[in-house]
Design a protein around this nucleic acid. Sequence first.
DNA 1: AGGTTAAAACTAGAGGTCTTAGGAATGGGG
DNA 2: CCCCATTCCTAAGACCTCTAGTTTTAACCT
Lengths: 197, 197
Amino acid sequence: MARAGLTAERVTIAGAELADEVGLDQVTMSQVARRLGVKDASLYTHVRGLEDLRGRIALLAADEKTIRIAEATSGRAGKDALVAFADAWREYAHTHPGRYTATQTPIRIDPELAAKAPGPRRAVELTYGMLRGYGLTEPDLTDAVRLLRSTFHGFVALEAAGGFAHERSPRQSWVRALDALHTLLEHWPPAREGDSA
Amino acid sequence: MARAGLTAERVTIAGAELADEVGLDQVTMSQVARRLGVKDASLYTHVRGLEDLRGRIALLAADEKTIRIAEATSGRAGKDALVAFADAWREYAHTHPGRYTATQTPIRIDPELAAKAPGPRRAVELTYGMLRGYGLTEPDLTDAVRLLRSTFHGFVALEAAGGFAHERSPRQSWVRALDALHTLLEHWPPAREGDSA
DNA sequence: AGGTTAAAACTAGAGGTCTTAGGAATGGGG
DNA sequence: CCCCATTCCTAAGACCTCTAGTTTTAACCT
């Protein structure tokens, strides 16, 4: 029987495609094997198991998303950068729902593998870079980054879960949310007594 | 063999407990049956299947969370109410991680069953009520509600996924995020040209 | 009390999944 | 050309979901 030419990467990509098509929890070893024209057991040469595969999909997605954001924000500053960053984030979640879902799973990723992935560190740099123009300093900077990431992630997650059943289109709320966040970053409230606790 | 006295509700609760203990995706028919001292097949008298059980857990969680929030915000207004609301939300996610995860799944819930659940409607009322003091009007009100829900959900989701690896404690960032959101609600930016698109 | 009956729980089994173990083919390096 | 590490396979065990058909239970009725 001719070799299929599998690699860990090809298996991961097949899994990611499957995730986007039928949902992350429909990604099984068997399905991925079938898609690659191979028996289930053959995958275990390249991937430790289902958990490992899921982790690799998550890492792939994180990298891809970071790249999109980097492209989108390149050369922009201030609110332009904020909107480009956020739109790229949401766009990725929309076009790759399965991959995006994978990024939400608690980190059960092989640490050694994770160390090789450029995504996370780069993502952090991008976010801090985007906020540079607002003149925040630590620890406000970290807090602001966390607030932004929370809002972006929360919005697309709720959107995907069907949480916005209301009349008003999510798109409109999204635009207004970005307006609001921009305003907020420009007028970031000073820490008050007791906030260091 | 003596009857176990199962009901759909008892099965759901067993599933919810299991979810909190070992994670939602470890909740299987077999495990739930084992916990109840019953054979797998017996569960199908009370619950349509695994999907259905998951949906019921999600509904249970939504109701419980809403109740906690209602209790916490009762009698409060303004920033007090905002903080109580948010803290109750986060607290629920922390103490019931499996149940909370269940609420994130896209709605595959039996519509008939969902109609009976008081949670969702009540949750919406609570949120709008909490914002009453800020003097917002539609459609800003809807946008603000969506922003808050996104941020709350996003924060606890990232927290649970290990997304806040930084030095600074999530608790501190949470407190500051609430400060920031309060400020934002007090100075909600007016809609600009083109925002209705 | 005893008999009837609907529901609850069981046994059996088909079909799917994950994973390990060990055997056979393949193709690149000596 | 042949070695042999790697790739892919078959086989098999354990577990899972769900359906069908059967037995047991408890509640109701006279």
